[in-house]
Amino acid sequence: MVLITSSTTRAKCPYCAAEFDIPKGQVFATCPYCGTTFKVSEPTASIEHYVFTLKYDSNKAFEAARLFISIQPGVPSDASKNINYSLGRLYYVPIYIYEVVIDAPCIETEEVSSGEHFEASVLGGQEAVYKLAPGSMNIPIPIPRDYPFPAQVREYFKPRFMKEAFYIQPTIDPYEQLGEIKEPYLKKSIEEAEMACPGKYRVIDKSSFKAIAHYPFWMIEYTYRGGNYRVIVDGSDGTIVYAEYPLDPMKKTRWLLIGAASTLIALGTSQLIINVAGLSTINSWLYSILSYIGGIWVFLSRFVKKKGVYMFKPREEGVFSPPR
């Protein structure tokens, strides 16, 4: 299944000569017959196209989701037993792999380099980094920015992946994106070279777009007592990326009462300090409540709604990403 969102145009595979329809404006096309991926504007240029191995089938993904949902705050105690699988859709999301290597050596430098040793009399600027970026702006499932996709690849793309899953076409031009990605590194490298040998250096930009990779995500839908909920599961390692879950009215009320009590105690603490210290104040109630507004927001945003929502936070939870 290929997600086609706009009108189509005809493309011809440079390897097997098969003709097929692709959405207009698409940068790359993948032949549904032989699996060759090529640039639409330059079909003869070869493109490496990989896919990350799917390690979680829909049952395993649902089990991971069930376990995860059962421990969320405010979830009914019977959620683990009474949630029912209703639908599982596999999406292959395109990501681009870039290698940014910028060298700005001083012209006068003398370098000795073998496989195991390196010596240089003077060094200018240098930057080397691997970067990943989404290959489409139209990804229909909520994946957080900076999601820690692994950079390494697993297997070459096969046409069957397009038939077994919702295959999202890459639509962003990677060569334009590479310019944006390497810009800060280029600038830094030149700054370093300017500090070391002003005006007497060369800039060698070996940065390249390495490959397209498609990454599997499951969108699992489940029901609980008549309500419908969605979960997005990383199909490669089972990380829960996004989850909606039911909230128990009693638990919600309990948490909101704790929130109200916390607000009153914070206000009371302020007034107590002001009175004991004999301080002169302006609008002390307003200032005190504003100082606790973050806490009030947490309680209200979590528990004044029908569904709970979890979103993976790369900064907080990325530490547990497995080294895939």
Partner: peptide, 18 residues
């Protein structure tokens, strides 16, 4: 968190005066 915010709230309300 409650105590810290309470203390900061008290301080915040005195700053415009002092």
């Amino acid at each position: 968190g409650i105590i810290a915010s309470g203390v900061i709230g008290a301080i915040a309300s005195t700053l415009p005066i002092y």
